[in-house]
């Protein structure tokens, strides 16, 4: 075991993983985090805690991770390269690990100009792949970037993102290979709507032998309504929503759109369960945490394995 995290144990035991996501509040209300966490408890193997997502200031990711641990859930500490230099990153990794954090997701981070502080200086001292490598060096060699020794190195299960839907498409699998070379243990993908493109990407990864070296969790976000689908299609960079998905949502009565969105997600999950090279699903039910129990039930991923 690299970290002994629940996610690592679930994946090592060969189970199909099911992970969730939670965005910290724009304030100091811990109850909000606890309330969201209750919907996820027992329904997912681990919960991603976003880090100033979309470059908007929120309660820090590691702090919300600690609340999750108090509530008996396993967090995945997301860390973006936008807001910290290598000193702050290594310090936060030590601190978070000390308090029980065992998983991390290493990300570049959305550019500051998307968020509420567009004039801030983006740090980007290191990039996301370099962050993966930094965490691995801390874990496996017990070394800081400086080369100095770490007393009791942090044992972190190292995650990163992959986006099969951003151009150049043929590059994406090579970027995955780069992340593997840097030392990543698991990948959570961007939200998948274009299944054809995703199948091609996974096949390429299988052909290159990459899926034997890393766990792939397929990203799923159920559509709540047609407006959300259109927004994701037009406004969110790196997300591709085929017109046929929107047509399908439009084709049901207005009151049934959310239900249809869940139905589409469940069909995707069924396919992922059978897809060679896919080891689980990352469920990003954005501001829809209370629906996760129903989604998990309908996706037939319950009960979650005890490992």
């Amino acid at each position: 075991m690299k970290s002994g995290s629940n996610l690592e144990k679930v994946l090592e035991a060969g189970h199909f993983a099911f992970t969730g996501e939670l965005g910290p509040p724009r304030g100091t209300n811990a109850e909000e985090v606890r309330e969201k966490a209750q919907h996820l408890k027992g329904n997912v193997d681990m919960v991603n805690i976003t880090d100033n997502q979309t470059a908007v200031v929120r309660m820090s990711s590691w702090a919300a991770c600690l609340i999750l641990i108090q509530e008996g859930l396993e967090p995945n500490f997301q860390m973006v390269c936008r807001d910290r230099n290598r000193l702050a990153m290594q310090a936060d990794i030590l601190g978070a690990y000390t308090h029980g954090v065992r998983n991390m997701l290493c990300l570049s981070g959305d550019h500051c100009m998307f968020g509420d502080h567009p004039d801030a200086m983006g740090v980007f001292d290191i990039d996301s792949i370099q962050l993966v490598n930094m965490v691995k060096t801390m874990r496996d060699e017990g070394k800081f970037q400086s080369g100095g020794d770490i007393e009791d190195p942090p044992k972190i299960f190292i995650g990163a993102a992959a986006n099969p839907f951003a151009e150049p498409y043929e590059w994406r699998v090579h970027r995955l290979a780069k992340k593997i070379n840097a030392g990543v243990d698991f990948i959570q993908t961007q939200c998948i709507y274009n299944m054809d493109r995703f199948r091609k990407w996974v096949k390429q990864a299988n052909d290159m032998g990459l899926t034997e070296k890393v766990y792939i969790l397929a990203g799923v976000t159920p559509m709540k309504n047609v407006g959300m689908a259109r927004y994701m299609q037009k406004k969110v960079p790196g997300i591709e929503v085929p017109e046929k998905v929107i047509d399908r949502l439009k084709g049901v009565g207005k009151k049934k759109v959310a239900d249809e969105g869940i139905k589409i997600a469940c069909e995707q999950i069924e396919e992922f369960k059978e897809m060679k090279g896919v080891h689980g699903v990352h469920m990003m039910a954005i501001e829809w945490e209370h629906m996760v129990p129903e989604i998990a039930e309908r996706a037939k991923v319950l009960p979650r394995p005890k490992v």
Partner: peptide, 11 residues
């Protein structure tokens, strides 16, 4: 983002 291992997923 001044990346050395790009392109990122935002292309």
């Amino acid at each position: 983002k001044g990346l050395y291992n790009g392109p990122c997923g935002g292309t």
